[in-house]
Amino acid sequence: MKAQYGILRFKKYKGPAISPIEAHNERTKEQYASNPDIDTSRSRYNLHLVQPQGKYREEADRMIAAHCRVRKDSVRVVEALVTASPEFFKDKNNREIRAYFAYALKFLEGRQCPDTFLSAVVHMDEKTPHLHLCFVPLTPDGRLSAKEIIGNRKNLVKWQDEFWQHMVKQYPELERGESASQTGREHIPPRIFKEMTQLTKQKEQLDALLVGINPFNGKSRAAEISKVLDSYIPNVARMRDQLRKYNVAFTKTAAENEKLKEKNKTLSASLDKAKEGSVLKRLEDAKLRQDYEAALKTLDSIPPEVIRFYEDRSTQEPAMRHDK
């Protein structure tokens, strides 16, 4: 399952740049030679979640004049771009896409007064659907300060954290769309837990097939076990890579962990370390590691003759396909 990211970005605009961004967002030009991704035949599917009441620059100046005086070089408009990985929108219809952006807009309305919004338009005529929300960066006490609203690098990380926390309630498959260097991988996406649940179900299926297996009936069950292993082994390997990606500590193989004899001690140690950070995160990490190691233990319990059958079958099948 490919990762799907929820994305939120910001841009700041001073006076001269406001009209060009309006022309782009509102599709007021007949052609867009500078952006070949725009398919004007699909522009009729674009939709407004917030309808502009006038020209961006004029509306921005009107709002600002009602509250404060500013320098000529002040940031007058901030644009929030909301989208997601292309994979997220695959197979979604227009109603579902609109619902995604409407839910994202609720988050932005909770962080910035909707009265300052100039326009919120969803573009459906480019490769990936996305929302442009333009607003005047007025603070609650009436000052014009994009710096205070958007903030520095640390505050942008907070924006990303809270955006992801909002979106994942409705769309649990989404991951946080920032780099590991910024996030420290604090959030393990729900997708990983779902994949572990599926892996655990496969483990239980294997465990059932392995009950009572012995040298006399091993061959008869080998074919059925091999079918499960076709997906189980790649899934275990993928889970290993995912846990490494999210900095979940675990042993590489059951053999290196002395057949998991120290599993309980390791788990207890991770619970002690919970005091150092997020208790919930540490507990989730420990559970993921425990489930993963249980999956490895099942692999270790497969008799050698079944493994040989699986390996022989795996090497024979490509040759057979090639012969055909």
Results as ranks from 00 to 15, higher is better:
219 K>A: 07
165 Q>C: 04
248 V>W: 05
142 G>T: 12
155 N>K: 08
142 G>Q: 07
186 E>S: 13
246 Y>D: 03
236 V>I: 14
174 L>I: 13
199 L>F: 11
207 D>R: 10
230 D>E: 15
161 D>S: 07
148 E>S: 08
148 E>D: 04
205 Q>S: 09
255 A>S: 02
181 S>Y: 06
199 L>V: 12
216 F>V: 11
238 R>H: 15
231 S>A: 01
167 M>Q: 11
184 G>Y: 10
173 E>P: 02
154 K>I: 09
191 R>S: 08
168 V>W: 14
209 L>D: 03
187 H>M: 08
157 V>L: 15
226 S>D: 11
181 S>D: 11
155 N>W: 02
223 A>F: 05
258 E>R: 12
162 E>T: 10
210 L>D: 03
217 N>L: 06
202 Q>M: 14
256 E>V: 00
138 L>P: 14
233 I>S: 05
222 A>G: 00
147 K>P: 09
215 P>G: 09
235 N>K: 15
207 D>E: 14
157 V>Q: 06
240 R>N: 10
167 M>G: 06
204 E>R: 09
239 M>D: 06
239 M>V: 08
252 K>D: 11
204 E>A: 08
255 A>G: 01
215 P>S: 08
230 D>S: 06
148 E>C: 01
209 L>A: 04
154 K>N: 12
241 D>H: 14
236 V>F: 09
237 A>Q: 13
158 K>A: 11
160 Q>E: 04
176 R>H: 08
185 R>E: 13
247 N>R: 08
234 P>G: 02
257 N>C: 09
140 P>W: 07
180 A>V: 07
194 K>T: 05
234 P>A: 00
252 K>W: 06
144 L>S: 01
219 K>R: 13
174 L>W: 10
237 A>C: 11
206 L>W: 09
209 L>F: 07
192 I>A: 02
259 K>S: 04
169 K>S: 00
144 L>A: 00
230 D>Q: 13
198 Q>W: 04
196 M>D: 01
233 I>A: 13
204 E>C: 03
148 E>M: 06
142 G>I: 07
212 G>L: 10
233 I>D: 08
214 N>A: 02
187 H>E: 11
212 G>H: 00
163 F>V: 01
166 H>Y: 12
195 E>I: 13
241 D>V: 06
219 K>M: 15
201 K>H: 12
225 I>R: 00
142 G>S: 06
204 E>D: 10
203 K>E: 07
177 G>R: 00
159 W>L: 05
184 G>N: 01
227 K>R: 03
